[in-house]
Design a binder for these strands. Structure first.
Lengths: 215, 215
DNA sequence: GCCACTATTATACGTTTGTATAGTAATGCT
DNA sequence: AGCATTACTATACAAACGTATAATAGTGGC
């Protein structure tokens, strides 16, 4: 009996490789098609290995969701904290980044939607979703507040919160629909559409955000 | 051997019962848990029946998606064509209806997301999605145009189209996030948040849409 | 080079899955 | 009531599934 040769990997590296493989299989085959054997094959390991890292398939999928959302919120936080020339530019960059590559991504949307489809029925999914949604809202509030102050708009916490909810909704919706390659319009239009809409939502002077990132 | 007694149903009625059962199982158990046996049980028939109506499980799921989107777009069209006192009220009602019950529904969102998760990898899913997305955009454009004209805003087709994309994004995002019971805010706030944001996106005078549906 | 540790492979098992098909009971017509 | 039609049940099958476990080869330390 000839055993396949293999290379050992540290615990973190192997674990992350399995989570990445899980996400790859979910993006391609959905929840119904991502079997343990497929995930193992994608990760380049045998199916028996998975039990050494996760106590069940369910746990591995939950962890994959947490891992994905950690990546998405991490990238959003980096974007929010990036160097910029003022509050308007920071907000504009944040919004635009969400409706452009690499965030505008059918893979990311497919994964996000696949997990959202389970939020209603699974407490762990719901918890991960709520935490990341809260984090996105908080990031947006922090970006919106100084912009409102700068333009003399009402900037009380409640107003900022409402704006953050609306802006997050706009970004989510455009990101979702814009990533799916439907061919109904050129996704390159989305940054301007998003920024123009955001100016309206925040009652900013026309061009405040669009001009903040234009050449 | 005692066979279970049963009642015959006409082809359309039985078929729709199966599609409803499919959606119920998908909403509860996801793509990975909705087996043919579960769906049959939910529909109150034996598993062998399904082959008499659908040539495969895959086909049944695709048909369920088309059926769901038919319901959602049908309801949207009804809402768009409902009697109203003017263009602003029609648009306001349409927007508000999308972020309130019965549309604000974790079941609907779970189903929608579950299928969206498959759009990237499945041509049939992508086709159904594109057709319904186009229909929503068209409905919105038709609602937006007279409102812009009424308020002397630029109302060329390209402008309407861009506004429809933005508004649809806003509605989708708020509907999605607002349906999931995260407890971060009261979903009863969403109609006002959505309408206020829509006024901004369309550059309408403050209160145009909010006041159109307030008591 | 030797050895201990352990990451990994291969295999097994019981259950579940989607698909296939023969048989029969419900129902409408005469 | 009798009969033909057919919607539906029950069962079977091969494959796939998630889970479990014994064995072994890779690797670092000495």
């Amino acid at each position: 009996m000839t055993r396949r040769s293999y290379q050992r990997l540290g615990e973190d590296a192997r674990r992350n490789a399995l989570l990445e493989a899980t996400l790859d299989c979910l993006a391609e085959d959905g929840m119904g098609g991502a079997s343990v054997r497929k995930i193992a094959e994608r990760a380049g390991v045998s199916a028996g290995l998975i039990r050494h890292y996760f106590s069940s398939k369910d746990e591995m999928i939950h962890e994959a969701y947490a891992y994905l959302m950690g990546q998405l919120t991490g990238a959003a936080a980096d974007s929010a904290h990036a160097a910029s020339e003022g509050a308007s530019q920071a907000l504009a960059h944040f919004i635009a980044a969400n409706v452009m590559q690499p965030n505008l991504s059918s893979r990311k949307v497919s994964l996000w939607a696949t997990f959202i489809g389970r939020v209603r029925a699974g407490a762990r999914y719901a918890e991960i979703h709520r935490d990341s949604y809260r984090e996105f809202l908080d990031l947006l509030e922090a970006l919106i507040h100084p912009v409102l102050v700068q333009h003399g708009r009402p900037a009380a916490p409640a107003a900022c919160h409402g704006h953050a909810i609306a802006l997050n909704g706009l970004i989510d919706g455009l990101w979702l629909e814009g990533s799916l390659g439907h061919g109904l319009y050129d996704p390159a239009r989305l940054p301007v559409i998003a920024l123009t809409a955001a100016e309206g939502i925040l009652r900013l002077p026309d061009g405040t955000l669009v001009r903040a990132i234009a050449p």
